[in-house]
Design a protein around this nucleic acid. Structure first.
Length: 480
RNA sequence: CGGGGCGUAGCGCAGCCUGGUAGCGCACCUGCCUUGGGCGCAGGGGGUCGGGCGUUCAAAUCGCCCCGCCCCGACCA
């Protein structure tokens, strides 16, 4: 595994990101398949941590996991008008199978609302069958024009929740409940602060009545949608004729929701915390929380140090880097760029004195401590790091958030922003949820990211484009 | 799909203009030496030069055709 230098963020943020992803052993471009990536050992292990946290919360809120086919009859996509319009440009379609042209082509799922609709019709007859709460862990294909590892790839992994309810109120409650789960995972596990909000009509999911999202800000000030929760109303219920009989004996279409989080989260945490030395992983998702690097010169030192290192590692649940022929310096660089939160140095002097050196990845702080207190220091360091990563990201977002009171002002701030050069901002402005307003913002390649659920600013105002009254400021930014 | 760039060792590249033994750095293997932030020295292995056709005594190099990848624009979690 060649270890090359990492491009500094200052020089080229996009190149830096690629370097961190590859040097951190997170992923590499598949090359042989357009827009796809290979998720490597370190990256997949991070995903497994995210999965465990999310899955636990999904089950704790009453959902069950199922698995649906990856192929969907093409006609299914066409049953919901907006849905087909939104997704058809990015579909991969299977037309030949078993050496024969298929009578009806299959679409490789871009999302499963349609196939869920079909099965919900079979599974739901009565209000007693509701709410129906399911979730699926799966892969998805969307033929995107431009891809970036983790942030947007042709194939990605995700979880998609699908639920059916007897009333709109109940469905909306579900939508917001899962939005809270998403915000919780982002902030408390990934240490990525997010804004919960409503997407504009122009930005909502194709086929939804309303889309809610958690929106994050990366180090370069560019926005990244980290999760979405959709209120599907009765749109898919009608399209797939999913009716239930109420306790009063009346027939009605079910009220549905769907919500998803993807491997993009890995991109989010990389872009939020990593630095010019490489990956920085929040302790809660780090596959290896600590590595012990033994240092020795002579053979008898080697034996002593390795023994002490093994003991320490066992006690801490850490990994010992016993590779021969690698200098300690090379090992420090190796683990640093893989984002290991804590590295312990253990040399002959330490063994003799019963000490060790504890080094923290994010701050680079080194401290000589007694081996007996290693366990306690280790735990405290992980906790501090997790908390401070979130606090720093919050602080950065605060510094890069500004208010604007005219469209010219918004444009002036956001026009020069690019993913490569950075300088991105969250611009908060009063702007009405109206597709023509989205269009105007798009003219300088920005977008209305969310209308926050919680107003932390000055309340109602007049739309900067139409003058009509709006309840609060929305977040406008450039996004990935 | 429009515009630009690139395909030579696992990776990053030089050589091409002006045709004549396929090179450099990193990585890899062996040995010695080193080890508290990318050690050093010596030796070694590894190539259908993206593919095809042509020109020529001779093609990585010149010509034609094809293929693939990357970047920039229009779509998106």
């Amino acid at each position: 595994m060649p270890e090359s230098p990492i491009t500094p963020r200052e020089k080229d943020f996009a190149a830096w990101y690629q370097d961190v992803v590859m040097q951190g052993d997170m992923a590499e471009p598949a090359e042989i398949v357009k827009g796809c990536m290979v998720i490597k050992a370190n990256g997949y292990a991070v995903w497994e941590h995210i999965q465990r946290e999310l899955d636990g919360r999904i089950k704790a809120t009453g959902h069950s996991n199922i698995y649906l086919p990856v192929l969907i009859p093409q006609s299914f996509l066409q049953k919901e008008a907006e849905h087909v319009e939104g997704f058809s440009p990015e579909l991969a379609v299977v037309t030949i199978a078993g050496g024969k042209e298929l009578e009806e082509p299959y679409v490789i799922r871009p999302t499963s609302e349609t196939i869920v609709g079909h099965f919900f019709k079979r599974w739901i007859q009565s209000y007693r069958d509701l709410p129906l709460l399911i979730n699926q862990w799966a892969n998805i294909i969307r033929w995107e024009m431009r891809t970036r590892m983790f942030l947007r790839t042709t194939e990605f992994l995700w979880q998609e929740g699908h639920t059916a309810h007897a009333s709109h109120e109940e469905a909306l409650e579900e939508v917001l409940r899962m939005l809270d789960v998403y915000a919780d995972v982002c902030e408390n596990i990934l240490a990525v602060p997010v804004i919960k909000g409503l997407k504009t009509r122009a930005e909502k999911f194709a086929g939804a009545v309303a889309t809610y999202a958690v929106e994050g800000m990366m180090q370069n000030g560019i926005a990244l949608q980290c999760g979405t929760s959709h209120d599907l109303g009765q749109n898919f219920g009608r399209a797939f004729d999913v009716q239930f009989q109420s306790s009063e004996g009346k027939l009605d279409y079910v009220w549905q929701t769907s919500w998803g989080m993807t491997t993009r989260l890995i991109g989010a945490l990389i872009m939020t915390h990593s630095d010019d030395k490489g990956l920085v992983l929040p302790p809660k998702v780090a596959p290896k929380k600590a590595v012990v690097v033994p240092i020795y010169r002579k053979d008898e030192e080697r034996a002593q140090v390795l023994e002490a290192a093994a003991k320490m590692a066992e006690d801490l649940g850490a990994h010992v880097d016993t590779r021969e022929g690698q200098s300690p310096g090379a090992k420090f660089f190796h683990w640093e760029r893989r984002g290991v939160p804590v590295v312990f140095e253990l040399g002959p002097r330490d063994v003799a004195a019963g000490k060790t050196v504890i080094k923290r990845r994010d701050t680079g702080t080194k401290e000589i401590i007694a081996q007996q207190e290693a366990r306690e220091k280790f735990g405290a360091t992980l906790e501090a790091m997790q908390a401070e990563l979130l606090a720093r990201a919050r602080q950065r977002r605060k510094e890069n958030t500004v208010l604007a009171n005219s469209i010219e002002e918004v444009e002036e701030i956001l026009k020069p922003v690019t993913a490569e050069k950075g300088g991105g901002k969250f611009v908060l402005a009063h702007i009405a949820d109206n597709p023509s307003n989205d269009e105007r913002v798009k003219s300088f390649k920005a977008s209305i990211r969310v209308i926050p659920l919680e107003d932390n600013y000055d309340g109602p105002g007049k739309c900067i484009l139409t003058g009509e009254p709006v309840a609060r400021r929305a977040v406008i930014a450039k996004a990935y």
